[in-house]
């Protein structure tokens, strides 16, 4: 890339780099706090204050949370529903978004309006439960994937992304004899990798954070994802002691809480760096056009 070497540009770059670095540090600090507390001994935490580096290292909280297989088991459930669920999401959403991106399609506005309407009005928890139950999805992991197969928000924004793709590119495929499904999978999707990565990420994070539907739809707690556990640990720790008839255990709840947060958050945090290469500027578009 050609570098512009004017003074103005240099000042701009310096300010820009410094500012972004500061913002990035500001963003990561609390997570460092969470991480640090999870590795700190309970006694140290009891003294209070902001901990950014454990003075007395302790693995007690991690030993505690790994003392049963619940955490690992629910983590596997989470990974399973996240991977499979996101795949279902992307297929269903792009299948629907692509035709809706064609402005000549009859009935398109009506459908879009109907979709938009569901963003604002919904029947609520109980009627939805009845549908999920009628389809025999309750007590299966499908209940965490199918009822949310398409997000209206993602659909509308993805439709908008598809609309930006120049028609010329699609036409060449049509001349090659592809039908619309072929155009979508051979031309449009490869051209929309940044969008796919984005919505894949949105969906994946959505699946990862599910806890309410799991409790609602699934009675068998061995099928619950990790967020159910996380929620319970956080809530339990925030309610004060004094109700129990026995002493609280030796371990400071805060450190355990933080350890669970770390364990439940790291996997989904790792998704983004892997997707980043698809955000590289205009790769596909440039090459196809050139």
């Amino acid at each position: 890339m050609v570098q512009d070497k004017t003074i103005g540009n240099r000042i701009f770059d310096t300010v820009n780099y410094t500012l972004l670095l500061l913002i990035a540090l500001l963003c990561v600090m609390p997570f460092i706090y969470v991480l640090a507390v999870s590795f700190t001994s309970p006694a140290e935490v009891a003294k209070g204050g902001l901990i950014l580096w454990p003075k007395e290292w302790s693995l007690a909280s991690y030993r505690y949370i790994f003392s049963t297989n619940t955490l690992v088991r629910s983590m596997l459930v989470s990974i399973y529903i996240t991977v499979l669920g996101t795949l279902i999401n992307l297929i269903f959403t792009s299948l629907m978004a692509y035709p809706l991106a064609k402005t000549h399609l009859r009935g398109r506005q009506t459908i879009l309006l109907a979709v938009l309407f569901t963003m604002l009005f919904g029947g609520g928890m109980i009627p939805t439960y009845f549908v999920v139950k009628a389809l025999h999805l309750t007590n299966t992991l499908w209940s965490l994937m199918i009822p949310g197969a398409i997000s209206a928000f993602n659909l509308i924004v993805l439709k908008n992304f598809f609309q930006q793709i120049p028609d010329g590119l699609e036409d060449s495929a049509r001349i090659d004899g592809c039908n619309e499904v072929g155009v979508l999978f051979r031309i449009v999707l490869p051209l929309s990798l940044p969008a796919m990565a984005t919505f894949g990420l949105f969906y994946a994070v959505g699946h990862w954070n599910q806890f309410f539907n799991a409790i609602l739809y699934i009675n068998d707690n061995t099928k619950w994802p990790i967020q159910v556990l996380l929620r319970e640990v956080v809530i339990l720790a925030s309610s004060s002691i004094g109700d129990s008839t026995i002493d609280s255990t030796e371990i400071q709840p805060l450190t355990i809480r933080m350890a669970v947060i770390v364990f439940a958050t790291i996997p989904i945090l790792l998704v983004y760096p892997f997707l980043q290469k698809h955000f590289a500027k205009g790769v596909m578009l440039g090459s196809v056009k050139g």
Binding site: F92, T93, G123, G124, A149, I150, E180
Partner: peptide, 28 residues
């Protein structure tokens, strides 16, 4: 546009089943 409509079908079914059928809950 038959292909386009065919592609819309799963999505339309989805919205009808999971969004519009439960919509009676609004009456609450």
């Amino acid at each position: 546009d038959k292909w386009l409509y065919l592609m819309l079908l799963p999505g339309i079914f989805y919205f009808i089943i999971f969004k519009y059928i439960p919509m009676y809950g609004v009456t609450m």
